[in-house]
Each structure stands twice: as structure tokens, then as C-alpha cells.
Amino acid sequence: MSKQEKPLLVVENLKKNFGALEVLKGVSFSVNKGEILSIIGSSGSGKTTLLRCLNFLEEADEGLIQVEDEVLFFKDAEQSGKENFQNIREKRLNFGMVFQNFNLFPQYTTLKNVMLPLWLQGKERREKKIAAFNLEKKNNIKNLKLELKSLKSEYKKNKTDENLKAVEAKKQEIALTKGTKADVLSLEEIKQKTKEEATNLLCQVGLSDKLESYPFQLSGGQQQRVAIARAMALRPKIICFDEPTSALDPELTGEVLKVIKNIKSKNRTMIIVTHEMSFAKDISDKIIFMADGIIEEMGTPSEVFDNPKSPKTKAFLLKTEENYICEDATL
């Protein structure tokens, strides 16, 4: 038998309540690296809530979220409190998120919107590196000073030229150590690199001619494409899309779906909540149909779309098809 591929993301028995309302009632699934998982289902079935739990915008009540071998979240029925909800900031970086209504930062240009997370991260990493270096330096100097002290007392006891030389050498070594600096990029260099990376990402979504535009100057489709570029910036392992086209006019939907198709690659894993059935069928490796907080049906696109087993899935697909026909009829 060929070696079983290990999933990139494992979600087990995820539960989430809002007060008395059970929104997720125990959701389990997995996604392999490079796969596209699409989640469909009627309004209120918990799709957004699921994505928000993955991004730690909501704290699940129970369940497991694991990426590669790292358990990001685990809580079983007995546990309570926030003890498993720490270091969220780092955990979040496993996931990117594209929101229904874009949520671009209005005061920044397209380019700056994508640069900002890169720039903040670059700066923070640099500071951490410097801090670590300085700590080590401080310890080194402390040790060297101790050595100097013993050399000095040695020299006091025994005033030989050799001992004097050793003292002088140690002093020099201390001075040298004091003069060393962490080997990091300058802020200017980081900014430059960040800019290149952001420009590159915006090219990938076809917006290289809009780098200096502000969000209010862009169409909805263009704004969403910026949001996609921004979500890719920090290279998350998994990018989540929450109905990326449902706030758009129908004629703008196509360009966004095309961009999502274009960024598909064997290294990019995506979870897409969508009402665009033909798109989901076309692009996905796996489909989840959610109903009332559970996974009603899961499988390959042809399994779910062409041979649905659950009556609920059948009814849902029939309904969306009807809508589709209605829309067609009005044209």
C-alpha cells in the first residue's frame, strides 16, 4: 500500500455555542496540503463560524484544531476557561482570511495594504533578533569581565609580563565584543524587500496598475483581489475565504473567482465558503455540505454534486439550481 498522506489540517469534533444557540455541533474534517476544500450550505448553518474558529476570531467551546503536527487548539468537554487559547497571535498565522466585505484598510493604498503586515512582521523579527543578540552579548561580556578579574588578581600576585599581556588581551577582547552588532537588515532594507514582495503579490492578482490607488477608488472585485493578495502576504499554510464574491455585483464575481483559480497551486491549501456551485464543483478537491451545525455530507465534487446521498443535500442543491434557472430566465 502507498504511504497514507498526512493531512495538513485536522479538525475534530469542533463545537461552538452562542449562548443557548448551538452553531457548531461537532464538526470533523481534514484537508491535505495543496487541496481546495469548499464548504456549501444554507444560511445560518455555521460556515462563517467555522472559519472564524479556525482563525481564532471566535474561541470554540470544544474540539481539536491541528495543523501539521502542532495542536493549535484542544479542549474537551470537562475543560473550561481560556488556558488553551494562548499565543493566539502566532497560531493565527497558520491561517489567512479573506472576508466577505474585504475589510481593506481605507487610509492605505493598495500597495500599503499588502505591505503593512509584512512590514510589521519584518520589523518585529528584526527587533527580536537584536534583543536575542544583545542578551547574549551582555552575558558574554559578563563572563569576560569575570575572566578579566581573575587575570588581574593573577597579575597582582605575580607581576610577570606574560600576565600583563593576558590582562591587556582580555581587555581588548571585551572592547571588541562591546563593539559587535547584530547581523540584521536595516529598516530601509526591510521596507524595500517588503515593497517588492507586496508588488509581486499584487501582480499575481492582476493589480500591478493599481498599486497607488486607495480602496475607495477600486471596484468591489478589485478590492477583493487586494484582500486576497494581503491574505497571501504572510504565507499562511491555509487561506480561508468566506463567501468572497457574495458582496459583489454579478459581473465582478468572475474576476475574483478567476484569481482564486490562478493562485491555486500544489503548495497552496484553501478552504472556500461559497454559494457559487459551479465554481466549487470545478475548483475543489473536496466538498463539505453543512446543515444546522453539522457536516451533512462530505466527498469529492462529483460525489456531492452528482450523487448526493443525504436528502438535505439533495434539497439544497435542487433549490440552488432552481434559483439559477430563475436568474437565467430573467436575463
Binding site: G96, M97, F99, N103
Partner: peptide
């Protein structure tokens, strides 16, 4: 959504506020 967009990009609360 402005806060959430910042958080999912790994920003701290203070960064979201100031930037």
C-alpha cells in the same frame, strides 16, 4: 471587521490601534 482584518494578519492589539 477592521480589527479582525488586523488580527488575522498577526497584529497585536496595539498595532491594530496605531496602524
Amino acid at each position: 471587521g477592521q480589527y479582525e482584518a488586523g488580527y488575522v494578519l498577526g497584529m497585536k492589539k496595539s498595532q491594530v490601534f496605531f496602524h
